[in-house]
Write a protein that binds this DNA or RNA. Structure first.
Lengths: 350, 350
DNA sequence: TTGTAGGCGTTATCAC
DNA sequence: GTGATAACGCCTACAA
């Protein structure tokens, strides 16, 4: 292990002082061209690399941001991480990943890790359980941006990037209503999830706006966002009187389960039932009938969060107004809601 | 912004010297119990956190490892990251993620990032393109563990954790042969991928071992590992004379595409055609017919890689023998290869 | 068992 | 424009 080559070695090699070498990096404009070139070639020759640790020890801002997500294998979470990583890389920042702490002990360990490394800031998708953690973060002085979650309406103490799920729900149901459906089922996920609640609100808005009674939206609860739960919902659906001709599912996996079950019962998508999923995960496009799906711009959320964090941390303390960004989802239209053919149109008219 | 509370503040508060405070962390046993307690309570009171930067600046080993993968949204890569993150967290290490550099400029930036942060080591899934990068890493002195890739057979200069894909291919085809199939199709991916080549080798082994001619394995090339490519393969398959009764696909997505296409042509899985996928991604279990799939233990690869890196970096330089770990995949058996019913058994006998 | 002091590599402030 | 020098916060001989 060769001893690390430092700024002093470069200085000696280039026959200048350490201060000048430092200036070559930090204020290139104030050092004479020929001196600078001498220094640069010395750096090259010696293969010198700066020590980030010494930099931040000396008080420079850290170049590391942390991303906390619930589950690294969740495709949506990964789009957040991906967006963050891309934006961070472009900004010369490194990304540390961490799965959100699930109990007080983990919270302490996590907080220790973040503070000990003097992280630049944290991007986090808060869980319902982590309210105390969310409170501890600002107390520790670590800047923090919320992802996929709008800050408390009152006075925002942090920045956030959310997705407008109300609009999302509205888009999905409007699309179905525009195709002529008059009865839409909403296959919901766990009811306590705020995202789901907002999609429902949007769905109701669309129904109301079309002049239909609220009962035109029929709800079917699901305990979880899984294929199995979707299958079970699909089975229940088969026995429903006056079955809806279109379904909006709170997640692609639910839609997938429903799709399988409908197919097995001999019903066709989209001719018998139209189907809209949510999240536009790879599942949607790879389903046996490609699913129309509400596309939630996770990558953009991650990237925007990085930018907000950068903005916040490059300003002196207190001079930053916390800002809440809301991104709008789009509907990726695919075969599962294709216009119904003549036969089923006729059927509909009867 | 309150000024950081340092070791000196703690020392003052506990009425000891800074050296003693440091000892409380680094060699607790040599400091008297009552002194230690006084220090600990002072730490608690002041909310002191160590500065990792100062620690490693002083020569302590870094507590950060980097994980380089091709694509953060690739489900398999995610399992690698997940495994690494879990193991790292358990070991008190932080994980930095980075998408593998795609050109020389990115390589330089990446190398700079890693060296400037004085990373403890790197876990990497090497791409075919990154040979020069792979050479640059050890030159920079950063310890490195290869994931899903065995080191060059000659003299290994790094540790590696690979998956025994030959055995994997053998397992898959043995399973099919044991179910009575006598003609198996191999839907391969891009032929240059070494993993695919090895799975094919294993498949051929199984065929030979069963006393069948090599022609019992029929190959169908696919340009990519996507659903679309799988559909196209499925269509080609329909016109093949003497169609195989079982298929081993080099990836779940291929299998999914094949499944869709077979279904649309009125063929049933598994009664008409049995289907085995690969990677055991979530796609496999969530397919309309849950897919039997070759389960590649990505999480374990990531976790093992962390352990190897830890072992390597906690030994003095040169005293470490690079070790190549090979993990064995397992077959997750599901409905797509369920025993065929009486009817199709009969059909088979004819 | 505890205290003291030097140095890790960098940046910033001052003289020159 | 450039050079010397004092921090930053911590660890570890070595001295007491």
């Amino acid at each position: 292990m060769k001893p690390r080559v430092g700024i002093a070695d470069v200085a000696r090699e280039a026959d200048v002082s350490t201060g000048t070498v430092s200036n070559v990096f930090n204020r290139p404009e104030i050092v004479a061209v020929h001196t600078r070139n001498r220094v640069l070639s010395a750096i090259e020759r010696l293969g010198y690399v700066r020590s980030e640790n010494a930099r931040v020890l000396r008080g420079q801002p850290s170049r590391i941001i942390a991303v906390l997500v619930h589950d690294l294998t969740n495709p949506y979470c990964m789009t957040l991480v991906q967006g963050a990583e891309e934006a961070a890389r472009a900004a010369g920042l490194a990304v540390m990943v961490y799965t959100s702490p699930r109990n007080t002990a983990e919270e302490a360990r996590c907080l220790a890790l973040l503070t000990e490394h003097e992280i630049r800031g944290v991007l986090i998708t808060p869980a319902d359980t982590s309210d105390d953690f969310m409170a501890a973060l600002p107390r520790s002085g670590i800047p923090c941006v919320l992802m996929d979650h709008d800050a408390r309406p009152g006075r925002p103490r942090v920045c956030s990037v959310a997705i407008d799920d109300v609009t999302g729900g509205r888009l999905a149901v409007q699309h179905l209503l525009a195709a002529g459906h008059r009865s839409v089922g909403f296959i919901s996920g766990p009811p306590h999830l705020p995202q789901v609640a907002r999609r429902r609100a949007g769905a109701l808005e669309a129904v109301a706006h079309a002049g239909l009674p609220a009962t035109a939206l029929r709800e079917l609860d699901c305990p979880a966002m899984t294929v199995a739960a979707g299958r079970s919902a699909g089975r229940r659906l088969l026995n429903v009187t006056n079955r809806p001709t279109a379904l909006f599912c709170a997640h692609d996996l639910l839609a997938l389960g429903v799709l399988h079950e409908l197919n097995e019962a001999g019903l066709r998508v989209p001719s018998d039932v139209a189907l809209v999923g949510c999240d536009d995960s790879a599942y949607a496009s790879s389903a046996s009938v490609p699913l129309t799906s509400l596309q939630r711009p996770g990558r953009m959320v991650g990237a925007t969060a990085v930018r907000l964090l950068e903005a916040e941390t490059s300003l002196p303390d207190g001079e930053h107004d916390h800002v809440q960004v809301v991104l709008t989802p789009e509907l990726a239209v695919r075969r599962s809601t294709a216009a119904r053919d003549a036969h089923s149109s006729l059927q509909h008219r009867l």
